[in-house]
Design a protein around this nucleic acid. Structure first.
Lengths: 243, 243
DNA sequence: GCAAATTTAATGTCAGACATTTAGACTTTT
DNA sequence: AAAAGTCTAAATGTCTGACATTAAATTTGC
């Protein structure tokens, strides 16, 4: 094995990288069992705790799963779309919050990406997707809805639109973009009139989707982006003036 | 702490989740130092190895970094775009390779997403981005280039295009989509005539970007998608016929 | 007052042990 | 002979205690 015993201050990371590379290169295939921790410790000439730390690193990335008991062990894990979603959302959210990404930049990226679904969603959306979109619009127009609940429903609306494209890869890539925006959106307080305008645009988008008019969906999303950016700019300007 | 001592078979995962949630919720801020491993072990009523396994899980996701020596310890890490790129690419690549995603689906998603940069890239691209695109086109027309090198250059070309949009969030989200396609593209062997057609489309896209004609970039990408899908369909049909 | 040596606090690693889980083999009973 | 229960072994999960290594802080020497 290519573990460097001269640099004994990173062994678990080295071992994790070694195994990860094997998985990526396809030299360890899905559901294949890794050697037991004791055997790995032997192979790499390290102690079992060190091997375990390496395995925990891989488990954190959903690359392996472990099973206890006889004939248990560590197995190469088939990453599900759901797990990948969750990881992507966590990473995206933290990336935005920790790097002072401006609302403007994030919003621009989010709508640019979402527009890429417009044509496909208009063409392929099922009745279920349409119903989900309509249901969220209805929820959004309920009085007494908190800003957070409004934002959550907004996310659900857009995810239904994205899922309408019926392309799991597209849904996965967009999950991060759409969900990671939520904490930023939550910084905004919406007036009743703001909500009305957003809901009207959502209705426009839902109608266009129902009519399978991709260009209209595209334009609706652009209008929604302009509306959102204007609204946010107003809120931030007002907040800045108070300080 | 909310660690469940009744279920003593997942302690390190529970502790990792606990700390991760604190970071996500902003209750632990960037560069803040966590308690030492011994103190954490005390707080959670577990042993140090268990705490260490939890910390390694977090380190694997770049949520913390550790430093040795006096006044060392685990610190909340500011996730850089570069780290996030790398993670996204790993996850996306494995997701595609492990879930039998068809070339068609992945290709459709990739070009749909990339088209979302067309307008912005055409508007904002710098001379550097243009030069990078031209350089890759030149490399692609070199004779004797292996298929792998051709694909790598293709990825570099598209990343230059994406980076031209000058939106780090967009670049980050697209990195996964573009790079994860590479292993799938590598399954294809390109004839000289295939390469010519692709290079011609790349030149068309570069010209449109230089002319800041967003619609032409958009159409160029669509043409490239059609070309790629046709090419791949031919290769796969031929391969199927041989078996 | 500054430079070198020492101390100290922290992570990184190791060794060995026990606890717990689980599949499979074995035994017993019906 | 089949079904039920029991036992065993192999593996992960955890604990204890120790030592190695690193690097900042402190003390000492001049």
């Amino acid at each position: 094995m290519k573990i460097d015993p001269k640099n004994p201050a990173n062994l678990s990371a080295q071992i994790a990288t070694e195994i990860r590379d094997k998985i990526i290169a396809g030299r360890l295939i899905v559901d294949e069992r890794l050697p037991s921790e004791a055997e790995l410790a032997d192979q790499f000439n390290v102690s079992r705790p060190t091997v375990r730390e390496a395995l925990k690193r891989l488990a954190a990335q959903s690359l392996i799963r472990t099973q206890r008991g006889a004939s248990g062990g560590a197995f190469v894990n088939r990453i599900s779309f759901q797990e990948a979603y969750a990881q992507q959302i966590t990473t995206s959210t933290l990336l935005l919050s920790m790097n002072d990404v401006s609302f403007e930049t994030a919003c621009e990226a989010r709508f640019a990406l979402e527009r890429s679904c417009a044509t496909l969603s208009a063409k392929r959306r099922s009745a279920d997707h349409l119903a989900a979109m309509r249901a969220e619009i209805h929820r959004q127009s309920q009085p007494g809805l908190t800003d957070e609940a409004f934002c959550a429903s907004d996310v659900a609306f857009h995810r239904a639109l994205v899922d309408g494209a019926d392309n799991p890869v597209l849904s996965y890539q967009l999950a991060g973009a759409v969900e990671a925006m939520q904490p930023l959106m939550n910084m905004i307080t919406f007036s009743a009139r703001d909500r009305e305008r957003i809901i009207a645009l959502h209705e426009h988008i839902a109608d266009a989707t129902e009519a399978q008019d991709g260009a209209a969906v595209f334009d609706g999303l652009t209008a929604l982006e302009v509306e959102t950016q204007t609204l946010a700019a107003g809120v931030f300007a007002q907040r800045a003036a108070q300080h």
